[in-house]
Amino acid sequence: MSIMKHIIAKHWRQLLFIYTVQLGISLLVFYLLSTMFSSLNNTQAYSLIHRLDRTVLADFMQANPSAFDLFSCMSMILILGYMMISTFLNAGLIKSFIEDRIHIKSLLQYGAKYFWKMLCINGVCILSFLLIGTISFLSFFLIVGDPILYFDTERPFVHSMLFLSLMMLFLSFLIYVSILLVKIGLLRDLKLKSAWNIAKRKLWKSLMIVMFYLVLVVVVKQVFAGILSSSLSFFLTFFIIQISSIVVIIIRSLMYHNLLK
């Protein structure tokens, strides 16, 4: 409780700033979609608001084959754009926690200072995930073709695939937490090597911490999704979404604070 009070009471300006940036992005997405929907003017398009309808999507893709490329291109730009923003904001926030600075200005200064360093580390993170993805994909397709026919049953195949998936998941999680710890080390102005050494030492404890907060955030998001799935007015919907966004930011800040201890 005291950490929470500490975070909210001291760093509220920075958290509010991050919240505002996220709100801007999500309003941009809402604006793009609502212009698209109101220009489509048809009931089929509106059904997409409520659920992903396979017929509507498939008919759309069939009639507009290039639309998917356009859509994936736009999503890619949004994703890459927000990845940069997030790298900047996280660097600024964690360094502000380390230095006990509370103003938005310091968040921006630290963000700018450590941006490239953090971006490189994030690049490593993406590469490792890609590598893990490729290995899983290849190992799956090596077995899924003819070789499976040489087994008496597919049971060991299913078990090994399940085991492999769990291992890959765990490995990804391990890489994620180690990289987070290395980032913290670098933000503490340590050399890469000592940052890595500290990360190794604190790895198991940090795994537990991150796991706890990840579970917490999933539970919280589920609760909010439950509230939002009942039909509410426009303003109530907007209000609840804002609350949920703020709560998730606070949980993430708590995790960083805990990892810094």
Partner: peptide, 19 residues
């Protein structure tokens, strides 16, 4: 309201994962 809720669901899920 429905569109806001669905678009926010997607955009915040993505934002949270990336953050």
């Amino acid at each position: 309201a429905d569109l806001l809720w669905s678009s926010s669901k997607w955009s915040y899920t993505l934002i949270d994962i990336l953050s």
